[in-house]
Design a protein around this nucleic acid. Structure first.
Length: 478
RNA sequence: GCCCCUGUCGUCUAGCCAGGCCUAGGACAUCGCCCUUUCAAGGCGGCAACACGGGUUCAAAUCCCGUCGGGGGCGCCA
């Protein structure tokens, strides 16, 4: 069987957004599933709007998601000559023609037609030139574009997701292949490159569906084999409009920076439109490759709703072990100046117990950093809501010093030992253990919520527990 | 305006191609209860959908037609 070759061909006129990332991801899954090749191509023929900075960001986003490519990146801007040669060849074969019209002239004619309520497509003014007119125009205008001659008839193809689709050629105008400045348009460069790199399957967004017949016509004109097409439904925002900047930040790297794991994002994106058809929510990359099939992709537009991503991310974080989480946690701690190299050396064991203590309760890695702060630094404040809820009891300022006295002689600061001491004190004083527990939680973490308190105290240690309790007593007295 | 795609709980979806097993399943979200020192997690339960109208058929979420809704395209952007 022929090798399967697919490609992702972003245009570096913007960052890699979730829609593009999902398209890349489906291409990647398809290639990996069939032991094919995943090729990366940068469509930078729009010189004015493309930038190297954007290209870098796109590659970074793909690497973060784990979408590695087998060939490329190829840059279209380096292949201009080649596109020009193909266009000239079509001219020689009578399948394309020179167009001397300026965009302004065309716009004028179009406006007129539209004003008269008529349907407009390019009027083939330059196709029907007499030899004399042509000569005159050649002399008078230094620039000319090349247009494809769209023959009569219709084009039918079988889309791998949508099924059979037909377009009548009367609805397709003689589109431009080469602009007046000699740069190729998208239709030309995409077909030439897919042809030359032997692309067998074109998997892209639905926004390209109506471009497909034009491109098939081009393949035919070039005598090139026509690849299979699969068009993915576009992701919509919660207002059911096409996802855009209006819906907030949708750059893939934004999610990395907000503390989402690549695997969570991968699952989330893959499961917008695709379902392996079983009652399972979280998959490993290997499982997704194994189960992937274009036939299971839904045709209708999914809506971008972050609640599921949050859930996926929190489940993944709590399932991962400290070892796996370490590199991510380290990166985020560094940003907040909370990282210390000893956490992966002499204090590694302690640090891992901290990760294990906190990981069940965070949605993102950012949440992790917020809850980790009191364990790594003395620089934290009392949460106002927690003060209101747990520190208003007047008895606390007399009770807490007694607890401190109980804790001071302890040799072992194991959770069950500390718990025994605290509960005994509560019983002796005739108050609920909860009163001590909540106040102590506020003392050591500053927050009204935390993992089970005695586990927290064990990780924080005796010295810090006592000094923070003393600090709280002072605070209560003032 | 013209062309193309599409329509199952609020959301992601299973079921549709090969009609009966569907009083439509799961998950997220949400609500309630249990667990509990807090918050999560977990367990149990609730709310909640076949867009609408015609056909075909003994039988339709599943097949056909139409209507309506949503999306995309109609660039010398990609």
């Amino acid at each position: 069987m022929k090798e399967i070759r697919v490609r992702f061909a972003p245009s570096p006129t913007g960052y890699l957004h979730v829609g593009g990332a999902r398209t890349a991801l489906f291409n990647w899954l398809f290639a990996r599933k069939h032991n094919g090749k995943f090729i990366l191509r940068i469509e930078d023929t729009d010189l004015a709007r493309s930038s190297e900075e954007m290209t870098k960001g796109i590659l970074e986003g793909m690497r973060w998601l784990g979408l590695d490519w087998d060939e490329g990146p190829y840059y279209q801007s380096k292949r201009i000559k080649i596109y020009q040669e193909y266009a000239e060849r079509l001219i020689r074969e009578g399948k394309a023609y020179y167009c001397y019209c300026t965009p302004e002239e065309i716009q004028e004619r179009k406006n007129k037609a539209v004003a008269d309520g008529k349907y407009w497509k390019y009027d083939r003014y330059c196709l029907n030139l007499t030899p004399e007119q042509r000569k005159a125009l050649e002399k008078e205008r230094k620039q000319r574009a090349i247009r494809f001659f769209v023959p009569d008839g219709k084009t039918t193809f079988r889309d791998l997701i949508h099924g059979e689709i037909t377009f009548e050629h009367e609805n397709i105008e003689d589109f431009v292949l080469l602009r007046r400045d000699g740069m190729p348009t998208y239709h030309l460069s995409v077909v030439v490159d897919d042809y030359e790199t032997g692309i067998t399957h074109v998997i892209r967004g639905d926004d390209h569906l109506s471009n497909t017949p034009k491109q098939i016509l081009l393949y035919k004109a070039l005598g090139a084999p026509i690849p299979k097409f699969a068009h993915l439904a576009l992701i919509l925002g919660p207002d059911r409009k096409k996802l855009s900047k209006r819906h907030g930040v949708t750059s893939i790297l934004h999610f990395r920076d907000e503390g989402y794991l690549p695997l969570a994002m991968f699952n989330f994106l893959a499961q917008l439109s695709w379902s392996p058809g079983e009652e399972k929510e979280v998959y490993s990359i290997e499982e997704m490759i194994d189960k992937f099939s274009l036939e299971q992709i839904k045709k209708s537009n999914p809506i971008f709703d972050l609640a599921k991503l949050d859930w996926l991310n929190s489940r993944l974080i709590s399932k991962m072990d400290a070892e796996e989480l370490l590199p991510y946690v380290k990166e985020f701690l560094k940003k907040d100046n909370l990282w210390n190299d000893k956490y992966e050396n002499e204090e590694r064991e302690w640090f891992f117990s901290l990760i294990n203590l906190l990981k069940d309760r965070c949605r993102t890695l950012k949440d992790f950093i917020i809850s980790a702060r009191p364990y790594l630094s003395d620089d934290f404040t009392y949460d106002p809501e927690g003060v209101e809820r747990f520190l208003k009891d007047e008895r606390l300022k007399d009770l807490l010093p007694k607890l401190i006295e109980d804790l001071e002689p302890l040799h072992s600061f194991k959770a069950n030992e500390v718990e025994r001491v605290l509960r005994q004190r509560a019983e002796k004083e005739g108050v609920k253990a909860a009163l001590f527990i909540h106040a102590t939680r506020m003392a050591v973490t500053g927050k009204p919520v935390s993992p089970p308190l005695f586990d927290v105290l064990e990780v924080i240690g005796k010295e810090k527990t006592i000094s923070r309790l003393k600090k709280l007593v002072n605070y209560l007295k003032n």
